[in-house]
Amino acid sequence: MKSVWCKPKLGTAEQRVGASVHRKIPQRGGSQMYCTSSIPQRAGRDSGQVARVRRRVLGATVAFGAAIGLVACGATAPGTTSAGDGPQETVQLTLGTLNAAPQLTPLFAAVSEGYFAEEGLQVELLAISGGTSALSAALANDSVDIAILSAPDTALFNAQGAIDARAFGQLSNGTYDFVVTDDVDSADDLRGGSVGVSSIPGIDYLMLRTFLDDFGVDESEVTVLSLGGSANRVAGIAAGQVSAIASPIGQRSTIEQVGGLKVLEVDNQPWVPTALYVAEQEWFEGDDVEVLERFIDAMNATTTWLRENPDEAVRICVEENGFDQESCENDVAGLLGETGGPYTWSQTQEIDMEGMQVSIDIQAPVVPEVGDLTLEDIATDEVTGR
């Protein structure tokens, strides 16, 4: 596998929050190019002027290697689309994610197995550090065309005015377990103690808040500690730093292996979209939406193939995500089974609209501005429901 590391010119702190990206660019013969950099601010936008740099179109007669050269060097082809009976032109899209995860395997498969190419799309996958706020900033300033965000994050950043974007399809759904230490049997065992979250108002915090309420514990009766990602939260509760966390349902096997922990049954265990395809509002105006339709068609073909060939899903999870064989086998089985639900790796990419509404409802008490949103503000079924 070919690896190239580069550092383009950085933007100022005011232009961007300094998020670094890990570029993964497909090349001929299955090799990959990696590039870590910071993304500079694109041209500013207002109601009268939109930075039309999204639709970077590469003519079909351009050699594939030359097209990759454009991407690697930061060049941009003319932003026009084909008309008439000429050769189909390839639209270049940049898709931003936070980091590699088994649930993202279909995206890697769509690149490596040529499903995007069949729809005339050249998709560049970028892993952006700095959290969801950095990812939303990359979406807002056109550094990425599509971002993978959860439903709560999509609602939050729209409510805050950080983005003006809607979800047009869904990659995965999920819920969380209420994980506590073995000595917790009642609400009294939690009162006066500490609970762990990634951040406020992160999705696991919102879930934990729901669980505590269901368990009869008010948030004011516990100390909320920000511990970081899932692995850090599990480490924190295992070390006795906190007595409860919300853990993704797909990590049940990990919780069982840790020891000294258990999953409490709760009546209210909502499912919400954990990975949505999100694009800025102007993508849904005029002919641009046709590109999103082609993206969905490619993902439909990919998820259909992966469901028919789960062993291939495991292989791509290992080769592209970098996880070990056993982890990928367990994760793929879960994603295709009960821990994934009907909206994970579906063959329609349909959005769980009920889960979207739940995301608004559980977040509104924490961020009142979210309560002013409607489903139409943050999601559309027009692209998947053709």
Rank of each mutant, 00 (worst) to 15 (best):
V314H: 00
E293C: 11
S359A: 15
G228R: 05
R315P: 08
N300C: 14
E265W: 13
D287A: 13
G334K: 00
L306Q: 01
V263Y: 00
Q347A: 04
P270F: 02
E256Q: 13
A235T: 10
G334E: 03
Q251Y: 13
E350F: 05
E338P: 00
S359L: 02
S346D: 07
M353N: 04
S243H: 13
L261V: 03
L264G: 05
T304V: 02
L335K: 05
E265C: 04
V332R: 02
N321G: 09
G240Y: 07
I255P: 04
A333R: 11
E319R: 13
R233Q: 15
I245Y: 09
A238Y: 03
W283Y: 09
S253V: 07
L227Q: 07
T274Q: 08
G236I: 08
W305F: 13
E293D: 10
L276S: 05
F295L: 15
A313C: 11
E290D: 11
M353S: 07
I249P: 00
R233K: 14
I255V: 15
E256G: 10
G240M: 04
T348E: 14
V234K: 04
Q241T: 15
N268I: 10
Q241F: 01
E290V: 11
T344R: 06
S327I: 10
N232A: 14
V314S: 03
Q241C: 00
A298D: 03
D352N: 15
E320H: 10
A231R: 05
L292A: 00
V314M: 06
V266Q: 13
V278S: 07
G228W: 06
C328V: 11
G341F: 06
W271K: 09
T348W: 02
R252L: 13
